[in-house]
């Protein structure tokens, strides 16, 4: 069912289950948000999406208000603009404002809003949250001084990951997202929380000084671990994969596990093989490609001549691409001449 309503003097219609925010977005009307995430239940905490609705005594959050037939909504009155500006101003009054050195700079919603509302000066100053204790977990940098309490991390952890590793503790100005008893994080480290954080409060420990978003190139590819087939976005800087994320509109809906998101370091491992090796006098020694391939050909061909092709076997790999596997079995069958081809589907 569809309902008709007016937003900013524009007559629109939207599904009866839509919120004002959804209806506005579908119709190309921009409403700023910080705590909204279409994949999570509406929260209504940041108060940036305030709108005025005819008949209601005070502004309401667009993200939590269901639309109604005939509703008249104003999203950008002077009053609303001022309220939003004050919200951002207040957030900045309790923020390190260290964009110069923040990993999120250039990719940060709060920074964007500060720019949008031209907050050169802040009328408010006073105490800022300061936390001396750092979370000792190996994956996630949790810089809670930059947290704006949008609670997206808490919500994604509960609603999507089913883990509930974190919640807000304390009240009011002291409110803080943390694991129970403020221990170090001890969870699945899927990093879903990192992926939804609008500011620099959550990032990967390994991201540090490896290149901010603007400096990196992105390459979309597919995860090399389990069979889920998650789409990965590799961020590359100086021929190094420095960060991994995923787009929301993918088979994995943007969610990744600890391996997909954080286990990319092996690509640059110093242990990587970087030259062919041939065993000489019982030891594996570096050799040229040409020498190596000749060596293989000689050995394999003589075995084939002496014992027949079925004395040769080949194992292809669940780790390699379709094309590589196709070529491998083609090599075994068409070149070596045996059907002794298998792989590890059984293990």
């Amino acid at each position: 069912m569809v309902l008709n309503l007016t937003i900013d003097n524009k007559e629109i219609s939207a599904s009866k289950d839509a919120t004002v925010l959804e209806a506005a977005r579908e119709n190309g009307i921009y409403i700023p948000t910080l705590c909204d995430n279409p994949k999570l239940k509406p929260y209504g905490g940041c108060r940036l999406c305030l709108v005025e609705i005819k008949g209601l005594p005070r502004p309401v959050g667009a993200c939590t208000t269901p639309i109604q037939e005939g509703m008249v909504v104003q999203t950008s009155t002077e009053r609303i603009h001022k309220l939003r500006r004050t919200v951002v101003e207040l957030l900045l009054s309790d923020h390190p404002n260290d964009c110069m050195v923040c990993v999120k700079a250039g990719d940060c919603l709060l920074q964007e809003l500060a720019y949008l509302y031209d907050l050169q000066n802040n009328r408010f100053y006073g105490e800022k949250r300061q936390y001396t204790q750092k979370d000792g977990n190996p994956f996630l940098e949790r810089d809670m001084e930059k947290c704006i309490l949008c609670r997206q991390c808490v919500r994604v952890c509960e609603e999507i990951a089913g883990v509930s590793a974190i919640e807000i503790a304390y009240r009011g100005f002291k409110a803080k997202v943390c694991p129970s008893f403020e221990d170090d994080l001890n969870c699945e480290f899927c990093g879903q929380c990192v992926s939804v954080c609008p500011t620099g409060a959550l990032s990967g420990k390994a991201w540090s000084r490896k290149g901010r978003t603007a400096k990196t190139n992105e390459v979309t590819t597919t995860c090399p671990f389990c069979g889920c087939g998650c789409s990965l976005k590799l961020r590359v800087s100086e021929n190094e994969v420095v960060r991994v994320s995923s787009d929301p509109d993918t088979i994995n809906e943007g969610w990744l596990c600890v391996k997909g998101r954080f286990a990319y370091e092996f690509i640059n491992s110093p242990d990587r093989l970087d030259a062919p090796l041939i065993r000489k006098n019982g030891k594996l020694e570096k050799a040229s490609w040409d020498e190596t391939l000749d060596y293989i050909y000689d050995k394999m061909d003589s075995i084939k001549q002496e014992h027949g092709p079925d004395a040769i076997g080949g194992l292809l790999s669940a780790r390699c691409t379709n094309e590589e596997n196709y070529l491998f079995q083609k090599f075994m069958r068409a070149v070596v001449g045996t059907n002794n081809v298998d792989h590890c589907a059984r293990l």
Binding site: G44, L90, E127, L149, R171
Partner: peptide, 12 residues
């Protein structure tokens, strides 16, 4: 501490 104006605003 849920909403910004109350959390930071009353503090200010």
């Amino acid at each position: 501490g849920k909403c910004t104006p109350c959390r930071i605003g009353t503090k200010r």
